[in-house]
Design a binder for these strands. Sequence first.
DNA 1: TTATGATATGTGATAATGCACATAAATGTA
DNA 2: TACATTTATGTGCATTATCACATATCATAA
Lengths: 181, 181
Amino acid sequence: MALRYALLGLLSKEPSTGYELAQRFKETMTHFWTAHHTQIYRELGKMEKEELVSSKIIHQEEYPDKKIYSIESKGYEDLIQWLARDTVGQPKLKDEQLMRVSLFHLISSKEAITYLNKTKKLHTDGLAFMERWKRLNFPDEKVPKQELGEYLTLEYGMRYMKNWIEWCDWAIEVLEKFDEE
Amino acid sequence: MALRYALLGLLSKEPSTGYELAQRFKETMTHFWTAHHTQIYRELGKMEKEELVSSKIIHQEEYPDKKIYSIESKGYEDLIQWLARDTVGQPKLKDEQLMRVSLFHLISSKEAITYLNKTKKLHTDGLAFMERWKRLNFPDEKVPKQELGEYLTLEYGMRYMKNWIEWCDWAIEVLEKFDEE
DNA sequence: TTATGATATGTGATAATGCACATAAATGTA
DNA sequence: TACATTTATGTGCATTATCACATATCATAA
């Protein structure tokens, strides 16, 4: 149900196509939400049937036709109502990388360190991407109200990446010491 | 498919019941994996059919009967093979709390701050739980190989919680300043 | 020149996950 | 005394999410 509100939230900023929404998820939300494009298209279809959103087809000569979705009053009301609910849902995380770390008793320290360096690289790249994004979208630290949420979660994402990288360095040290004993 | 390997990994340490495995997830893995008990029982059932694990029923007078699962050689081989694969799966996160933060353009700063304080409390409690756990299970920082993975991911969890708390304080400050303008 | 990647939207099948509920006895709490 | 919680394992159903595939055109790179 929460994906629905994520989509309505993005549409509350500006009308968008399913493709654009999928981009947004990848670009600015991967560190707290992931959604496959097929799921997004399906959810948009459902919401249109329930009249929470409406769509308009834009014909394009060079590229495939676009379908621009806009939020409707009913969708906006649902969104606000959901936001006002005071139940705070616990995060549901599926981090395969950390799950593999939890199985380090089954492999050698050397293999473990190699693995950690690989995951560190992924997070270093992730951080670089977010820093570039921040420079482009919030160059002078000026934040319009519209983008407040993105600004706050972007900072969270960068801290999340940095935190992982630091932990990685710590873990590699632990493993190196572990080997000496 | 990864839940399967998480379960096999836990069973590689010691035979356990489905109930105990569900406890483990809640106690030491919530910050990187969540699994409902019904899902765990089902996966164990499937794995037993595929002969990756075996079970033994223990009759208890006072409490319901137990079903203790043990890992079989075929399960162990599958697990090792999976660990040796060099594809690193990207984390799939569903954090409703951060998703709500991303919608802060729809509510007042005051409401946003109230919300952040609530989520901060959750993470403070989470951190306290993990610190208590660490004191109980790794009192003198001595880590047997068996518990290496748990030790490393526990530290990650504590850093994750601290990171959230610090970010929360930062975000609240940003919102307070935002209101003044 | 052939192949990938970006743009753009989807369907069908399957897998993963979660919710409500069921059972059943003991222990703890109001 | 009545209700909630812990221990312990599950089924049926619904929702959520992913994979493989389909279609179509342009731009860029090997």
